[in-house]
Design a binder for these strands. Sequence first.
DNA 1: AAGGAAAATGCGGATTTCTGCACGAAAGGG
DNA 2: CCCTTTCGTGCAGAAATCCGCATTTTCCTT
Lengths: 249, 249
Amino acid sequence: MLKSERQEHILREVNIHNKVLCSDLSIKLRVSEDTIRRDLNELAEQDKVIKVHGGALSKSYHTSTYRQAEVYSLQEKTIIAGKAVTLLKEGMLVFVSGGTTNRELARILPPHLSATFFTPSLSTAIQLMEHPSSEVILLGGKVSRNAGISVGGEVIRRLTELRADLCILGTNSIDPEEGITDSDWEVVQVKKAMIKRADKVAALALSEKLNSTQRMKVCDINQIDYLITELPARDSRLLAYRKRGLEVL
Amino acid sequence: MLKSERQEHILREVNIHNKVLCSDLSIKLRVSEDTIRRDLNELAEQDKVIKVHGGALSKSYHTSTYRQAEVYSLQEKTIIAGKAVTLLKEGMLVFVSGGTTNRELARILPPHLSATFFTPSLSTAIQLMEHPSSEVILLGGKVSRNAGISVGGEVIRRLTELRADLCILGTNSIDPEEGITDSDWEVVQVKKAMIKRADKVAALALSEKLNSTQRMKVCDINQIDYLITELPARDSRLLAYRKRGLEVL
DNA sequence: AAGGAAAATGCGGATTTCTGCACGAAAGGG
DNA sequence: CCCTTTCGTGCAGAAATCCGCATTTTCCTT
């Protein structure tokens, strides 16, 4: 039996039973426990399983109950989300894109605010779902594995039939000259459609994303109305954006 | 039982009941109280629980981090999912409804299987997203807060444009006479549409759901092709269904 | 096809971890 | 204040892990 074949088998086993024991696998696959252990360690390094004393545990089982843990820069993102909330008014129709910052926004939404949210993002939708008084409409389509959002013609077609008061855009790269840029073509198409059909556009970005660019253009800087970062509005790093007419929160 | 597995269990227990006693856990998990106490101390060091005399208290009780509902009867659901997987073939177009059993199915999907999945369920879609070789298409629409799926005319309209090889239906109530029933009108509409547009229908149900009915009818028993429970196919409780012509797995 | 380097595997022994038990100290309840 | 329950610690046996090394397998080059 080949090594990779064996590891496939182990992975399948661990996903079905949520746990495996070195001793069991050793017998079932007719190899020494050392080999199993080595396999498990490799799989653990690739984040496929979680290695523990005596065997291994399934990752998805473990992380699905625990998942809250790893939003990086959570502190900053919460600040950003807090500022963004001030733009929301009763009864608004709002587009929300993907990303953890927007998820954070959904989480801290004031409970009484009743607005209608359209989003292609799975995680944002799930978070919004827990909000008591808002309506959530999911834009469906082919799901992009990397981005965790729906993409494709159907999403864009639906967007063209709508008109939003506000579009809240998670931003990977923003630059005073180049505007907002991104790296995934499908995602760019969706963002473009959202911007086009919204009266106002708010860009949410960690300060580390400022003055960076990527391959594909989403929009010009003057198409954006609000720029929200975790920095105070008067921070010098934001000067270039204020000069361009953006309202910096 | 593995140590880490045991600690998972303890954590789950403490989060459900808000408190646990060493003595209870010792009996339930069949280890000495010393071991439990050591576990609780470790969990307390990691700030997962609050250790008190005689047991421990839940921490999240105070911090109100709303956690994804615990998957109850996970063991049984994994068995069901395992059987359901055998119905899936390369290249199929499959409808998948919501529910934790279907989420479990998505989780244990063989990595190599490449199929196309349509689902209105957010959690199923998120789980399927992690699958390397399958395509996931999310059916978008108004999100139903209780069910965690998209509902409404748009979903149903999209479904009528499709034709699936298989429909995998999470089931809340099934009865040999009454067929499948459910309690949420919107959800029922979606399930009806899915059944109508699929060549074969598989109903996934915990045995506790057998022979129960609810207010609204989803479909007749003879519209279902496969019945999958955690019980062995020959179990007497399934006899009535076999007699009706369902293939019981 | 043959040869050889690299990777994979199994094994023995040293080390670490896990677990239950015993005993004395501490905490809690009436 | 006494009695019961719980706690902490040390210890011992069992299991799991780590480490180095010899042997086998795999794969690539010539």
